[in-house]
Design a protein around this nucleic acid. Structure first.
Length: 194
DNA sequence: GTTATGATTTACT
DNA sequence: GTAAATCATAACG
């Protein structure tokens, strides 16, 4: 299991890249779900208008971002979709990594059922809103430390072929829209957009 | 209290 | 390609 201290390092962009290929473990409904992280995006508290905490902007919603790294930040978007983030950096430096896609390794049946699919499809767990539905992550999982047996990250065993691209859905962020802070596994079909 | 909107997805035309 | 779904949150009065 990656220790909490790992997420308290300073460079959220590097951490977002390194998380691709790592495993997300979630115990739920009596089963252990395991999924490989295939796509991430970095959001940095300074010089990044796309970040919820840009300009030290602090609200009740993004409060977990201002806490110490190694915890979750889950919020509802468009009234429909839950977004799962991992807070990084030390307390007061509000960085976070959005998990955008996962590749199922264990517990697929539960994910298929969650998504009302007949069989496993790439979009069962690709896409930030889709993967939270598949894994049953909601705001009930907001602001919890990722060091329990029920929710944590395991380091990767193989180095994936990582592609860097611009982030998705942040047209309001001006020039920061162009930052290549989205990372994905070039060899995985479980990616939201190439 | 009221209003506008979004780290999206899906179903249409 | 365009639009609807849908609601907590943030901004404003």
């Amino acid at each position: 299991m990656l220790p909490i201290s790992y997420f308290q390092q300073d460079d959220v962009v590097r951490l977002a890249r390194e998380l691709v290929g790592c495993l997300l473990v979630r115990k739920w409904q009596g089963q252990e779900l395991q999924l490989k992280i295939t796509e991430t995006e970095a959001y940095r508290h300074y010089n990044d208008l796309a970040c919820h905490a840009a300009n030290s902007h602090r609200t009740p919603r993004n409060a977990p971002m201002f806490e110490s790294g190694g915890r979750s930040y889950v919020y509802l978007c468009y009234g429909i979709h839950h977004m799962f983030n991992i807070v990084t950096n030390v307390k007061g430096k509000a960085d976070a990594i959005l998990i955008r896609a996962l590749e199922p390794l264990q517990g697929e049946e539960i994910m298929i059922r969650q998504r009302n699919h007949q069989r496993l499809q790439t979009n069962t767990t690709a896409g930030p809103g889709n993967l939270t539905q598949a894994t049953g992550i909601t705001r009930a999982q907001n602001n919890i430390l990722l060091n329990s047996s029920s929710l944590h990250i395991i380091d990767k065993t193989e180095q994936p072929d990582i592609e860097a691209r611009t982030r998705i859905g942040i047209g309001y962020a001006g020039e920061d829209t162009q930052l290549p802070w989205r990372f994905y596994d070039n060899n995985s079909p479980y990616v939201s957009k190439r």
